[in-house]
Every structure is written in C-alpha cells, then in structure tokens.
Design a protein around this nucleic acid. Sequence first.
DNA 1: ACGAGTTAATAAAAATTTTTAAAAACAGCC
DNA 2: GGCTGTTTTTAAAAATTTTTATTAACTCGT
Lengths: 407, 407
Amino acid sequence: MTTLEDELVPRKSVVTHKKNQRLKSVLSYLYQEGACTLAQLADVSHTSIPSVTGLVDQLLEEGWVSANGIVTGNNGRRPTLFGLRPDGHYVIVLDSNTHDTRLLVVNPLRQIVFQRTVDRRLEDTAGFLDFLARFVTETLTESAIPRSAILAMGLAIPGLIDARRDLNLTYSSLNPTDQSITTWLEERLDIPVYLINDTKATALGENRFGGGLGKKHVLSINIDWGVGLGIILDGKVFQGASGFAGELGHIQVDPDGDLCYCGKVGCLDTITSASSLVRRVQRAVLDGCVSQLAAYQNDVSQITINHVIEAAHQGDAFAIDQLHETGYQLGKGLSIAINLFNPEVIIVDGVLAQAAIFITNPIEQAIIKHCLSGFRNDLTVEVTKLNGAAKWLGTHAYVMENVFADF
Amino acid sequence: MTTLEDELVPRKSVVTHKKNQRLKSVLSYLYQEGACTLAQLADVSHTSIPSVTGLVDQLLEEGWVSANGIVTGNNGRRPTLFGLRPDGHYVIVLDSNTHDTRLLVVNPLRQIVFQRTVDRRLEDTAGFLDFLARFVTETLTESAIPRSAILAMGLAIPGLIDARRDLNLTYSSLNPTDQSITTWLEERLDIPVYLINDTKATALGENRFGGGLGKKHVLSINIDWGVGLGIILDGKVFQGASGFAGELGHIQVDPDGDLCYCGKVGCLDTITSASSLVRRVQRAVLDGCVSQLAAYQNDVSQITINHVIEAAHQGDAFAIDQLHETGYQLGKGLSIAINLFNPEVIIVDGVLAQAAIFITNPIEQAIIKHCLSGFRNDLTVEVTKLNGAAKWLGTHAYVMENVFADF
DNA sequence: ACGAGTTAATAAAAATTTTTAAAAACAGCC
DNA sequence: GGCTGTTTTTAAAAATTTTTATTAACTCGT
C-alpha cells in the first residue's frame, strides 16, 4: 500500500526529458535534411546556439554525427556542416513480399551498404519467421558487418498488421503462438525489430523522399495482387486504432461482383488488381482481340503486366484501353478515399507506376466524375519518381524515427 | 536585398516561446479537466512545481484562473485546486443550421451564461451574414454582457467549408465577395471569429466530453438532411488538406440511384438521410401499411422523423423496419469509412440518436457483414449521451483550443 | 492533545540555458 | 593588402529553471 514502486521508478527528470526531446529533433532533422548548420539545428530544436552546440558535441562523441565540410559561397564566416555518420548505426530493411525476400543494410545517410535477395516469397506458414531469422543471420555473417554496428531492423510485409500487438492477421500462420512477431524476432536476433505494413512503408517513403515531400496529407496507391492504400496524415503514417487503416481494397464496389478471397463479395480488389487486369487481357487475347499482345496467343500465361504496359507505351490501343479500364475503376475507388481524406497528392506506386500517364489519366478522369469539385482543386495525381525505392526508404525512415523517438 | 524585414520581425525569443507553450498546456488542461492541483499542472506542462506556480500566478493576475477549494480526504497537507474563472473570457457559440439559428454565451467552465434562439434557418443568400452579425450585436446588447468580456466567437454551420480560406462552398452565396467569412465577421463585430463545420464540431464535442472521451480515433455520424461524418484522429478534428475531409454523404453507393442535389448519382445522401426515411414512410402510409403511423393517413406530411422513432419505441414493427433499413444502409456506408479510418468508436448523433438501439443494431449488423473481422474487435457503436450538446460543446472547445494555441 | 507520518507550498541553492559581448573567419572593394 | 561589412563560433555574463531543503498543513493513532 506504499508508494514504493512509484519511488523506485522515479519520473524521468524533466531536464533529461527535455534534452532527449532536443536530441531527438536534432537527429530527426539531420536524418531528413542531410547536413545542417548549427543555426538550423538551433531553430528546429527550439534552443539557443550554445545549447545546440552542446548537443552536437555529445552526438559527435557518441559517434552519431560528424562534421563534414563547410558551406561555401555566402558572405561572412562559413558555418560548418554537421551530418549523420555513414559508418555504423546500420538498419536492416527486410522486405518480404509476394515475389521474393530482400534484405538491405542501410546506413544513416540512406545508402545501401549491403544487400541480398532470395527467391522465396512470403509464405503463410509457421516456419517462415524461422526462415527470415536464418536469412538475416546468414546474410549478416556473409556481409562481415559486426553485430554491434546494427542499430535495428525493419520488417515490411503485406497484410493486415495489428500494430498494437505486432501480429499479421492476413498471413496469420506467421504469428508465433505466444508472442508478437517483433519480440520473437528480437529474441532470436538480439536486434530491435519494427514491423510495418508494406503499403504504409511505401507511403512514408513517398512522403519523406518522393513526390509527397513536404505535403501533409498524402495517399499512396500500390496495385499488385490487390489494391494497397498507404495513408499519410499530418506527415505521419496513419495506422488507425489497431493498425488496419487504409483497407481500400475490401470495400464493396459491386454487390453483384465476384467473390473475394477475403470472403466478401465485390471488393475493389476483385476488380482493379494487377492480376485481374492480366487475366482480362489473357482472356481477350484468347478471344482473338486486335493487339500486338496477340503474339502470345499460343501461350497467354506468358503475358505479364509489364507486357501490357510496354504495349501501351508502343501505342497499342487495346493495351491502352485495358489500362484505362483498370485506372478508371481504381480512380472510382480512390474517389471514396479522396472524399474522406481530402489529400493533397495521390502517388501511384508499384508495377503500374510504369504505365505513367496511361494510368494517371483515367484515375484523374474518374476523380473528376466522382468527387465534388472542391476536392479536385488542391489535388494532384502523380507517379512515383523513386524507382521502386519508396518501400525500403519508408521502412528505413520508420525505423529511424522510432529509434529517435525512444531516445 | 537586405535581411531588414527578418530583423524587424525578430524570431520570437525562444524563452517566451516556451513560456507560451507552457501557458497553453496549463490552460488547455484546466479547460479539459476542470480544477487541478499544481502538481498535475507541473506534470502536463513538463516543468517543475516552482515554475508552474509562477505560471499560475500570472494567470491568476490576468484573471484567467482562480483558486477554488482544496482537495479533501487525502493524507498530508491538502493541495489547493486551481480552475478557470467562470466570469469573463466568454465565448459566443453561434449555431446556424437547417432548422434555426442559436446563440450561446458560454463561460470557460462550459456553462451557458446567456442564450437566444431565433426561428431563422441558414440561408444561402448574400444577406445572411449580415443577419448573423445583427443577431449577435442585438443579443449581446440584450444580455448586458460587456464587449470586453467576450473572448471570441465560434460559428458552426453545415456545408463544405474551405478551412484555409474560411469560405463555405456549399452555401456559397454566404461568402463575402472579397474576403473570408471570418474576417468579414471580425471586422463587423470586432471579435475574433472561428469557423467550423457543424458535423466536425459535433465530433469534437463527443471526443472531448462525450462517448469518445479519451479515445484517439472517433467517428461521429449525424443524420439530418444528409449524412454528416465528423472525424477525430489522434484526438484532433481531422480537416484534410482543404477542410473537406469526411464527405461520406457524397460517395456513390448506387450507380443506378437517384440524382443527388450535388449533381452526382446514387450518393449515400440520397439513400440514408432522415428526410428520405420520412419520405419513404409517408409513401408507405399512403399505400396503407400496417402501423400506428397510419393515423396520419389523411395528412402524411405531418409525419416527422420523431414520430417514426416514437412509434418504434412503442413497438411498432413497421417503424422499426424502416429505421432498420436506414440504419443498415448507413452502416454499409460507414463500413467504408471504418475500413479506411479504423476507428475505436462510432457515435450516432443528431435526431436519430433517439432511435437508440433501433439504429445502432442495424448499423452493427451492416458492419459485421461489410467489414473485415479485425476492424470489429476494437470497435463500438454508441449513441450520444450528450443530449444534443455535442455541437456547441465542440464549437466551444474548438474556439478555446485555438485561442490557447495563439498564445 | 500531541507526536509520527504524509503531502503541499515556499525559500534558498545549484544547475542549466539564454543573452550579450567578443573573437574568429571570410568576401569584396578600393 | 588592409579595411569594411558580414556571419559563425566561442566566451562570459545574465537570466531562468530545477533541485534540494525547509516550512506549513493536515490525518491518524494512541
């Protein structure tokens, strides 16, 4: 009945709390902006220059920061630039998806230090986590990077991820029986692990380093087996109460539509996924449509989404129409999200990004038709310029920002 | 080419900035929680007790705060409680809607000091703002409250509100030709004015003082002429890029449906609004359905939504079915928002709140059918317990929090 | 009713942070 | 090349904030 326990864990001294707060903002800013002057850092951390000098000195000692160069060209004494050190504090980005599994070792400057891809896709099995752990351990050994240089790991996977319990509800066999995915991996690898949905990671990557740079509200759309929607609100990944936010793929758009793998009927996923587009094209080719894709008539299973996109770029009217149809349906679904989120920019990611205007144009057309006019004025539809790097960049940012937050 | 301008407006000294930050958090906390001890205030403002004592002393002098009572019952010396003063710092809450126009003068303890309702609904005319200004001036004179005691005014109105320009895009004739609604009113009344969409105000009220208390992600649904969705994310009103977020009413749910007043076809508004429910009931009564509402067969235009709800409470199967139909359709629309926002709680507000279980049950039923199971586990559907006060409470909170933020 | 135990408020001392001042570093111009 | 103007960095002084210590207020049990 005493307050002993409260006394044993005293409230973190308010001065250390504030110092950590400032260290965090300094590190975050350096991570986001690259090299900065003391004046800039003083600005963002809301402290005086002598104070921020002290903070940077500490980070210098701890090996987080180094002085690299001075600003040239301006009048007066040139300020020295401080930046994060590229050696050490590596983050492992592990991306396991429906095609393969890829591991990257990334330094604080967002440069890939080491990488390895293995031709094994994400499986909904109990043993897959074990495979992942072995893959990480082996790759790390191979890379000769000392364990002490690893700061943390980020795991980006598809599926409904319960962000509070760190479980995957779609690939549910993945989940350990008695603990979360992250703690299982942490115990096995002895590295802090952060789990993030792949689409959310992509959206974060776009917001931090891509087309959504500087924007507050960003939607990122990624079409693959289904429709993935990543949401950035107020510059942060929006998770919702349990981490499920953004399930655009399973809203009903056609009550009389096909059965979706989720068990419901007429989901957007069944209409606008890349796989359904390919299936539609394959059927049409079999039925003898006029298109350069008819070359595959003998074995339509050879036709991939990339073939369709390529054909469109070469002016194939059939391919353009097919992309238009998918884009329009997608845009119709997106209009719902636009009405609810009122975003500033929508970024098309994933395979369909290469379709460029062939996909953005029908999306815009659908938005014009299905959104109130006010929503359109401040909205742009873009294609990613990150060349497929958005996902790992976003995962890295997610890990780094979480690490800084725990300071 | 000089930096003269920068020098003329020097960056606010970092120490004043921090002090204002702390004053803000103290005032916000006092506003939200009522009376607090110095220790609590030190906690929330991240300062030491001597420091927060200084802040409270200042607020005491400025007339914001008063000491009212001491905590009883605990061991040791009892702390004095500090709270906002009920006299002065009044906020005018002006609520102009599709039924009438209501003015409340509210003190910092959220008590209504004076109120007046006038039987004039929101009009989409150029002169309406003039009427509002006159109404405020006259009521204020009548109330004998000195102008100096008025802190600010909050105007809650329906319609798409451009939060960056403070214009109403739905009731567009309302907008002054050359300036925003707020600056027009501010110049006329000499009182700071804040504009907020009525549904967003309601949602904020629920989040701060109602069923969504303590929750991070709250959806508030309000059915009247259309479907209004208010969104609270991370404990804040979610506006989106332009302030249009949450337009659930105008997403297409039936491509072959009726023409909506917005110009599009098959909007949710055309199916689930209270007015469409009443129309449906009136038609059925004319066609001679079995119900106690058949008493109005001679003049079905007498039937209001309240009659239907009352009949349902008395066990009228027809009325229950009609509410069920509306609730189910609404739930179907809400499922989309749930899939995207993953909220913790949904609160039914407005007239339909009185239908209680007759409306929440079909909503829940629709959610079960149309949402993935993960979304349901952490979600509750509730009816407001604020008895219609959510809107003005939310408007008051919106004003107060904005005033504090400008400190 | 009075000391033991407990918590809050105030006062004084210590630590931290900011402000101001001085020194250092650099460009351009006669 | 030295002087002026400009900007950054360091140093010292001033201000602020926190910590620690003290005093005040109160309960409870004997």
